[in-house]
Amino acid sequence: MLSVFLEVLRRDLLLAWRNRADVLVTLSFFTIVACLFPFGVGAEPNLLRTIAPGVLWVAALLATLLSLHRVFSQDHTDGVLEQLLLSPEPPVLWVLAKVLAHWLTTAVPLVIAAPALALLFDMTQSATGVLILSLLLGTPILSLLGGVGAALTLGLRGGGMLLALLVLPLFVPILIFGAGAVDAYLSGTGANAHLMLLGGGSLAALALAPWACAAALRIAVE
């Protein structure tokens, strides 16, 4: 059973490595969205420092959203998905592997790039640390819930816009706790509660989302 998980994970990571331009495009998108905000709201350092956690989280959310189509669409087109569903292995396992691969190739690069962007917004070092931690704990939920959305909209016309409409409302709590963690840290109340909620949300999504995702994939391939 574990071998399926590892094999699918290895395959997806290999495919991502071969198409590494996609990963870079996502990363550039994240950077450029974050850089648009100072042009919109003005480059006043205090203001930038205040909005930085929210801006970086929104940018991470949008970057994840735009990369979600990669999770299943390629496999849907070339028939791999159908073969995987026909195989005797439990779908939850390889769905989880694919979502993990998406998280490793999308969220982890964003987390690595975030400190550099935090510098642009003049965030303090310790606040940046909290931001990184909140991103690490929160982005798995984005990948897991987003995977469900991606599976539901697989192969539909206008799937991208539809996917945004489906998953963005569900992402709101993650945004609240993610950006809120940094604000709570800065205000002195401590970010523990927010970070724990994010971690708990990740575990809950890990337990529930793969099942919904597998069911949605079965419907899409039928």
Partner: peptide, 16 residues
């Protein structure tokens, strides 16, 4: 698909 979405949404409504 609608049924799955409605159920996922219903789990999320209290969280939201």
């Amino acid at each position: 698909a609608g049924a799955i979405l409605a159920l996922v949404g219903a789990v999320n409504v209290p969280i939201i």
